[in-house]
Design a binder for these strands. Structure first.
Length: 249
DNA sequence: CGTGTTTGACCAGCGC
DNA sequence: GCGCTGGTCAAACACG
């Protein structure tokens, strides 16, 4: 089931990338041309899975005007959530304090403004808004870099804008039942490996598992531990139903 | 009582 | 200069 899930995830991601690349030439540039000075990023959206996402980074190659980008590193993360969930909470391992919310012109859903709880010593800010195209996707824009370590849910470290892409050799699935904040309900994180990480990446034979039996045992153990977690099954059902709906493009 | 959220008001940048 | 818009402030409020 996980393999099928990965394959469908890959194909859906490819379709989404195609759509984005098609639209980026016309709508995106027109829409961003009227934006203010701070919005100088180009984005390569990467949709995550089951409420979590891979971050996309635009620090070095996106800013055409260096003067606009000196003050803060800007990155953006796309997070898939349950569309019925109205909260603008993106759990990325850091603790945030909300200081404002605003309805913007180009998007009917409100935009929430967060500061790192370590402010003012940590200057990082975060903006979270639902995607206008797909309400199930939260767009989190990070400004600045944390000058401290994460202090909750290290399992979500791959969501951090400063941590980069998660290591494909790390555990592909992690569950987190401990809520870092009182307002965040317990969730299950499903960080699926990309297809290249499943052992069929011929470019990097040293990372392949030599013994299929070990792989099989690992998969069985992961599946057993996951199926024991009722929150995982609920989250998986929600993710699959969301993907099915997304497929009707 | 301390901490975090909500929300209206205010401010600054930008285009006309 | 004026109006629009995004971003921030801060008092009021909620909650444990």
């Amino acid at each position: 089931m996980l393999t099928v899930l990965c394959e469908r995830y890959s194909s859906l991601q490819n379709q989404y990338m195609e759509l984005v690349s098609r639209n980026s030439g016309s709508d995106a540039t027109a829409a961003t041309s009227k934006k203010r000075k701070a919005e100088c990023e180009d984005y390569v959206p990467m949709i995550g899975f089951s409420g979590k996402a891979e971050s996309s980074f635009s620090d070095e190659d996106s800013c055409k005007k260096p003067k606009d980008c000196i003050k803060a590193k800007i990155s953006r993360a796309y997070v898939r959530t349950n569309p019925s969930d109205n909260s603008l909470i993106v759990r990325d391992g850091y603790q945030w304090r909300k200081y404002g919310q605003k309805v913007t012109r180009d998007n009917p859903s409100p935009r929430a403004y967060f500061k790192c709880s370590f402010a003012p010593s940590c200057p990082v800010k975060k903006k979270v808004q639902r995607s206008a195209e797909d309400p199930s996707i939260l767009v989190a824009t990070y400004e600045g870099e944390h000058n401290h370590a994460q202090h909750s849910t290290p399992a979500l470290s791959s969501l951090s804008p400063n941590s980069g892409t998660s290591n494909p050799r790390s555990a592909p699935v992690s569950s987190s039942s401990s809520a870092p904040t009182k307002s965040s309900p317990p969730t299950v994180t499903l960080e699926l490996m990309k297809p290249t990480g499943l052992g069929n990446d011929t470019k990097n034979p040293t990372q392949q598992v030599d013994e299929p039996a070990i792989q099989k045992i690992l998969v069985q153990q992961m599946a057993a531990s996951l199926t024991r977690d009722p929150t995982f099954t609920a989250a998986l059902a929600a993710a699959i139903s969301g993907k099915v709906l997304d497929h009707k493009w």
